[in-house]
Amino acid sequence: MSHSTVPRSRSEAKTPEKTPAAPGGEKQPGRSGKLRFGLRFRRDRTLLLMTVPAVLLVLVFNYIPILGNVVAFQDYDPYLSENGFVAILESPWIGFEQFERIFADAAFWHAVQNTFVFFFLQLVLYFPIPILLALLINSVVRPRVRAIAQAVMYLPHFFSWVLVVTVFMQIFGGAGIIAQTLRQHGYEGFDLMTNPELFKYLVTFETIWKDAGWGIIVFLAALSSVSNDLYEAAAMDGAGRWRRMWHITLPALRPVIALLLVLRVGDALTVGFEQFLLQRQAVGVDASDVLDTYVWWNGIRNQDFSYAAAAGLIKGVVGLALVLTANKVAHLMGEQGVYKK
């Protein structure tokens, strides 16, 4: 049927209540008003239809796998059936046995420890840099200089981790430009890319190189919303450059900083899966194993699906708890957090 058969009711029903009713028409209920379900369905069915593909994809690839986590409580055997998902129904249930195995595994605790070390280093070394860079860029007034600096700094964010790691190899690797120059001048070469002790600083540096420039974007947005009148009034009252920054600029950034901290802490168990997987061979398992790579190794490589799913489930549940806790803390501190109360 064509839409023109019911244009009036449709259009006016969609008008928000605050706008005046169409000329000559009596006041119509707003879209959120008390229309009957059937009527609302008929009116909005096109909109609903439009959401179907995305919702289907999310249900299939995000929700069904959540159900698939039941293999963590099984001794899952993919060969019990033609189809791996049907095999779940036929695998024996063993309760928390997989979790007991995991908690008894020293490698698991080592991966947990590594995860927290990397997270902590990122928090201390990486987190402040976009803030400082944003303050710096914000103080650059020449439009062309500013645009070029931003273009350059945003660029590495769009590189793949494969590219970032191989680029770092060309600088710090055994055949990299530094080792090459050292050797040509009679010194011994060096190879940072295969050094397990320094690996944690290397990955933090890689993260800074890739994403610190991109990170300034949210801070710049917050800075551009600060009214210039505030600065002028403060200057009139005799506040110098640094006092204006301390009393106006930084408070303007506070909510953004709090939000990003909450997000980061909530996501603490995810420290850069691809980065560690790519460099696993070069520096060894001891230095590079984190929770995500532990799951990958046991599940995909060793095909011990139930065991790996249990480890992944631990990560998911603790991660969820971290997000909720971080949000709670943000709310208590009077900040907004990821979602509203």
Binding site: R31, S32, F41, L47, L48, L313
Partner: peptide, 29 residues
């Protein structure tokens, strides 16, 4: 705004930002 069910659909999508299903179940799927 105010269309039928948009709040429910939105919540369904948003929830996935808080809890990832994990690598292994996704792989099996």
């Amino acid at each position: 705004s105010g269309s039928l069910g948009h709040r429910w659909i939105l919540m369904t999508l948003l929830a996935t930002m808080f809890f990832g299903a994990g690598l292994i179940p996704t792989y099996l799927l």
